[in-house]
């Protein structure tokens, strides 16, 4: 058994097809004359090539010409990636709009983060109080008045030094319980900074300092005031018909002004309407593009 190197096989194959350069051809012919193994291999390659050349051609089963419909479909293929991407974008836009609607706006289209208040230019305290008044209105001002109302009776038996109660926090202020309102004789929201509180009367209020306390609402009841005990609930009380003190009145006016601006729902409603339209439009576009892509995909 005799072996040829791969390089010789390549030369042999190229020589057979006359694909060697003239110089390589002469050199290889010289080798052929002196190497019988190479000559035998060349003969084998020639026979193999002849067998392949003699292979019959196969008739195509049909013509492969393209019809107008096929050409049209081919052109239509170009739109498939467009519709696919467009449907994806529309779907993402729809999801983003729904997400924005759910997380950024409440039912009337008002920002949950009170952006309008920040932009209103009001002092922070006033803005906060106005927001409190705005959001609470009459029924949202319901507090745990009865709980506080009970406290003076208990506290009446204790020393005056112990009558200072922790100021209710603003979070408690928002705890709405309709039952509280029924027992409350009078509910009054006061500015907690003592400098703005009316100083006349025997019911000076001792209020702990602190950021939470500054915006706290103190609930006073007539019962507590009558007891003469100094407590957070022993604010100077006013009958329902009595006009509020000047500071409170001013605050209430500011609040009412602010309330009138924040409860003006025309702008939020417009924004809300635009949001709804955008949501419906994006959903419709997503469906349309997805359907077009699906149809193209099925038909091509």
């Amino acid at each position: 058994m005799k072996h040829l190197r791969q390089r010789d096989i390549e030369k042999l194959s190229a020589y057979l097809d006359q694909e060697l350069s003239p110089k390589e051809m002469k050199k290889f012919e010289f080798r052929l004359q002196s190497d019988p193994t190479l000559r035998a291999a060349l003969l084998e390659f020639e026979k193999t090539k002849k067998l392949l050349v003699g292979l019959p051609r196969v008739s195509p089963p049909h013509n492969f010409t393209l019809t107008r419909a096929m050409a049209g479909e081919i052109k239509g293929r170009g739109f498939y990636p467009f519709f696919r991407v467009a449907s994806l974008i529309a779907t993402v836009a729809f999801a983003a709009l729904v997400g924005a609607d759910a997380f950024l706006f409440d039912q009337v289209g008002e920002s949950r983060f009170a952006a309008p208040l920040a932009a209103s230019g009001l002092p922070e305290d006033l803005a906060m109080d106005a927001q409190l008044l705005d959001e609470s209105a009459s029924e949202e001002l319901i507090t745990k008045a009865d709980a506080v109302a009970e406290q003076p009776a208990e506290l009446a038996n204790e020393d005056a030094d112990d009558q200072v109660l922790p100021t209710p926090t603003s979070s408690r202020f928002f705890e709405s319980d309709p039952a509280f309102g029924a027992n409350t004789e009078q509910i009054e929201l006061t500015q907690t900074a003592c400098r703005e509180c009316p100083t006349e009367g025997e019911s000076a209020v001792s209020i702990p300092t602190g950021a939470a306390a500054e915006r706290s609402a103190i609930i006073s009841t007539g019962t507590a005031a009558d007891s003469g005990v100094t407590t957070p609930t022993a604010q100077p009380t006013l009958p329902p018909s009595t006009p509020p003190p000047a500071a409170d009145l001013e605050l209430a006016e500011d609040a009412s002004v602010r309330s009138s601006t924040t409860t003006d729902v025309t702008e939020p409603e417009d924004r809300n309407l635009l949001l709804r339209i955008a949501e419906v439009a994006s959903a419709f576009a997503a469906l349309l593009f997805a359907a077009a892509a699906f149809i193209l995909r099925r038909t091509l």
Binding site: T37, A40, A41
Partner: peptide, 11 residues
């Protein structure tokens, strides 16, 4: 017969 290959292994 003219194209019958020899029993020789090359490679």
């Amino acid at each position: 017969s003219s194209l019958r290959l020899e029993d020789e292994v090359v490679g």
